[in-house]
């Protein structure tokens, strides 16, 4: 199998970030909240590879742990959004009728407000914990997955081969799992990558606004916030976590792009 260079770069960085997240305690030179220096915003040195942060903590260590938080939240929210959205989407498409109508109109309503705004409204009354964040993000984003899954399933459901299965007398299980699902999988898998990116950006934005992960814990967006003040003094500490967010997102994007291209060219792909 030939992997194009762009996808290879994407795979490399995606793997790197995930491994760093998993093995954070083994890799990080210092503790997450450990104050290692009396000087804040020290420039990068051999002792502190990315320098120190606004409270004199090791920025690299903090970023390694922060990445762990970001990736964990984004993954968990993606899983929620994905399972909820695709199950309901398939269900609406196959059952049709008022079930479809009700679900679709509800999703239209939720999607008529930008998700960041709606999330902010909800977060103004809920306690802000990691669990709550994951659930809010997951369910808000499930609307997008729902739309895609429903559209894909509706397209497939009107194909003659599905009709042929119905005429043969096949049950709903066979039709969903053997006729529709195998053909719906590749666009959905590629979408999963995009959803993950969106979740990374979403949680980073919330934390950056101070409404995501709460101190002393921090994800990348939170670390940007902590060090943002330094920018006006010409100190670039806030840029490192921001760049980490971008590179993770771009890498996953490159991989998703490649998966999408590859699956459409599979035997009997979606031509």
């Amino acid at each position: 199998m030939r992997i194009p260079p762009a996808a290879l770069i994407g795979l490399f960085f995606t793997a790197l970030y995930f491994l760093m997240a998993i093995f954070a305690p083994l890799i990080a030179p210092y503790g997450m909240a450990e104050v290692v220096s009396n000087d804040i915003w020290l420039p990068p040195s051999s002792e502190f590879l990315l320098g120190t942060d606004n409270l004199g903590r090791d920025l690299l260590s903090r970023m390694i742990y922060g990445g762990r938080t970001t990736i964990f939240i984004a993954t968990a929210a993606t899983l929620i959004s994905f399972t909820t959205g695709s199950i309901l989407g398939f269900f609406a498409a196959v059952v049709g009728d008022w079930v479809d109508q009700a679900l679709s109109r509800f999703v239209d309503l939720i999607m008529s407000i930008p998700s960041l705004i709606l999330a902010l409204v909800i977060l103004s009354v809920t306690p802000i914990t990691v669990g709550v964040l994951i659930v809010i993000m997951g369910f808000l984003d499930a609307t997008r997955v729902f739309r895609l899954a429903r559209a894909v399933a509706v397209d497939i459901n009107v194909m003659d081969y599905v009709e042929a299965a119905k005429l043969r007398g096949e049950g709903r299980g066979w039709i969903i799992f053997r006729e529709i699902l195998p053909n719906a999988l590749s666009p959905l898998v590629a979408e999963m990558g995009l959803r993950f990116i969106f979740m990374v950006l979403f949680i980073s934005t919330l934390s950056f606004l101070g409404l995501g992960v709460q101190p002393p814990a921090a994800d990348w967006g939170g670390i940007v916030k902590e060090n943002a003040e330094g920018i006006t003094y010409g100190i670039g500490a806030a840029l490192y976590p921001a760049i980490a967010i971008s590179t993770l997102a771009i890498s996953v994007n490159l991989v998703a792009d490649w998966v999408l291209n590859r699956t459409t060219s599979l035997k009997g792909g979606r031509g």
Partner: peptide, 14 residues
């Protein structure tokens, strides 16, 4: 591709 992967605040701070 790059810009849909970059959070607004990164562009801002850069």
């Amino acid at each position: 591709l790059a810009s849909i992967s970059v959070p607004e605040f990164l562009i801002g701070y850069i």
